[in-house]
Amino acid sequence: MVDPRVVFDDLRDESDELDSLVGGASVADWGRVTPAPGWSVAHQIAHLAWTDRVALLAVTDADAFAGEVEKAFAAPYAFVDEAAEEGAALPPVELLARWREGRAALQDALRAAPAGARFPWYGPPMSAVSMATARLMETWAHGQDVADVLGVTREPTARLRHVVHIGVRTRDYAFGVRGMTPPGDAFRIELTAPGPGGEVWAYGPEGAAQHVTGPALDFCRLVTQRAHRADLALTAHGPDADRWLDIAQAFAGPAGPGREPRGHGREGGA
């Protein structure tokens, strides 16, 4: 069992790292378009601020959160972009303050949540730890878009393990959201952790016929659709594993278009 405090601390640290990128950015930098079509740096931060706000509602006010779900049902393919557009229209200093305030409030609420409590979400209900893990995954992914457009190479950390965890657990979801039947057998996933030690993060039964190997960083970039599979050093062994790497997604919602290979046109996917 993972210590909830570790997950909460890692979410805080992941957010702080992204904050350090945008906190000193110029107004012009906030307006630069990231690899997600139509999304500037401001849109990326606005999206994180909005998601923190609705996550806080899920944890503290289920009735108010139900209203947010109704908005999503009314415009399933637009509500995320509309929220990001609204936030991105704010002056950067105001948007940054809103994001900082919202994520701090969410941290407090998650840490204070009763053990075993589950909260509503756009998918299945989530525990406080699951909610924090999902927020870390999104923060890392949108932070990657920001880093890419600002020309910053981020040093991968052990916090990626949380992103890997979601990526592995959402295997069947990735098939189901595309109307495909998930494979019946478990996969073996072996990923090399960041850092010089060469530690391997392993999931699933040893000796499984279907397995995936490669760097953990590349797996995270794949399941968050921040890079095309062709640009990553991931290897699938078995036809089902191979198919999964083509469609993997760690986020809820419709299947995204993903990113095109480098040098093959405009990258896609928010």
Rank of each mutant, 00 (worst) to 15 (best):
V2Y: 08
D3M: 11
V7H: 02
F8Y: 11
F8K: 01
R12M: 08
S15N: 10
S15Y: 00
E17P: 03
A25Q: 06
S26Y: 13
D29W: 09
G31N: 15
P35S: 14
G38S: 10
G38Y: 05
S40F: 13
H43F: 13
H43T: 15
I45V: 12
I45H: 01
L48D: 00
V54K: 00
A55I: 00
L56N: 05
L56C: 11
L57V: 00
A58F: 04
T60M: 08
T60E: 10
F65T: 01
F65M: 01
A66P: 08
G67V: 09
E70N: 11
E70Q: 15
E70P: 07
A75D: 15
A75N: 14
P76A: 08
A78M: 13
F79I: 12
F79A: 10
V80A: 08
E85T: 15
A89K: 14
A89D: 14
P92G: 12
A97F: 13
W99F: 14
R103T: 10
L110Q: 02
A112E: 00
A113C: 07
A113L: 06
A115D: 15
A117Q: 14
F119Q: 09
P120E: 11
Y122L: 14
P125F: 09
S127T: 12
A128G: 12
M131T: 13
A132S: 08
E138K: 13
T139F: 00
A141V: 03
A141N: 03
H142V: 06
Q144H: 07
Q144E: 11
R154H: 00
T157V: 03
T157S: 10
L160T: 03
G167C: 03
V168H: 07
A174R: 02
F175N: 02
F175E: 04
R178H: 12
G184K: 12
G184T: 13
D185R: 15
A186T: 12
F187H: 09
R188I: 15
I189P: 02
E190A: 12
L191N: 03
L191T: 07
L191R: 05
L191I: 09
T192L: 04
G195H: 07
G197M: 10
G198Q: 11
A202D: 11
A202I: 11
Y203R: 13
E206K: 12
A208V: 14
A209C: 06
A209P: 05
V212G: 01
P215L: 06
A216F: 04
L217S: 04
R221P: 04
R221T: 02
R221E: 06
V223E: 00
A227R: 03
H228F: 02
R229H: 01
L232P: 02
L232V: 06
L234A: 08
H237N: 15
G238D: 12
A241K: 09
A241F: 12
D242K: 14
W244S: 11
W244G: 10
L245Y: 01
D246Q: 02
F251T: 00
A252R: 05
G253S: 00
P254G: 04
A255F: 00
P261Y: 04
P261M: 06
R262W: 09
G263K: 14
R266V: 06
E267K: 13
E267Y: 05
G268Q: 10
A270L: 13
